[in-house]
Design a protein around this nucleic acid. Structure first.
Lengths: 136, 136
DNA sequence: CTAAGCACTTGTTAAATGCAAGTGCTATGA
DNA sequence: TCATAGCACTTGCATTTAACAAGTGCTTAG
């Protein structure tokens, strides 16, 4: 969905991210690409949250058309499709890190490695560069 | 929704915020409280995105039960209800600011004052303290 | 050439949303 | 004090979206 569509709601920056990420599933795909080194359709399906196949297909297509992810053919296996983050997708990292901090603070069930939390508060820049470097 | 409910999906921090904010409306209420000095039901209804009354009532109740906002009686007018952010809600500010930066970068229709964007990149701490100070 | 894996599609049922109208308080003015 | 209006919701119903199970078509491995 874009601001040009018939579903246009406002010019607000908060609203803009909601138009792309305002559901229960889309950001989980970004998470899997960004932090869990997943890149195949079948890998996204295996996440704990158990996304259904039609919703996954729908969200992958929407993320691609909004320029957050891109598709590529797996050069090793032509029946496989490789998904990856674009620069626009990688730029979501600061948002993801703030979300992680907030959840760590307010949800005692949230499971984030303690050294990641510590690095985040003491050396945020290197957390960012290390995370991005793994995305090649 | 909490991690104890029957809808539990995972212990992931990204999933945790999606359980509360994973829809098209909830975060707009937080935005209105945080940046637009709104505090009444009728004020939220007037936002550009045009939330419907039943959805607004539902989201206000969910935000209250998740501890992000709190209700109070208006001391001037007993027929009015005052909504405000809790500390947990105010702690969403860094997330909101990162969202604002991302949308400003990737959506040319997004309308954020240029001096706010500039302050955000050069003096983030003071943007935070000034925003919070207006929330009393 | 057959079987299995992978990335989706399709169909149906269940849930969430959008819209219009209504309800029950409180305040205000004649 | 009694009618009117404002405010914060509720309710009912039509439409849209999501969940679940099953199926399809292409690719590759044996």
């Amino acid at each position: 969905m874009t601001h040009n569509s018939e579903n246009f709601r406002s010019n607000c920056p908060i609203n803009f991210v909601l138009e792309t990420f305002g559901d229960k599933w889309t950001l989980l795909i970004v998470r899997d690409l960004m932090f869990k080194s997943k890149q195949y359709y079948g890998e996204f399906l295996k996440s704990n949250e158990k996304i259904s196949t039609n919703i996954l297909a729908d969200r992958l297509q929407k993320l691609e058309s909004s320029g957050v992810i891109k598709k590529a053919m797996d050069t090793q296996n032509k029946s496989k499709v490789l998904y990856s983050l674009t620069d626009k997708g990688k730029d979501l990292l600061p948002i993801m890190l703030e979300i992680t901090s907030w959840s760590h603070k307010y949800d005692d069930k949230t499971n984030v490695p303690e050294n990641f939390i510590k690095a985040l508060s003491t050396n945020r820049a290197s957390v960012i560069s290390q995370t991005l470097s793994k995305l090649k």
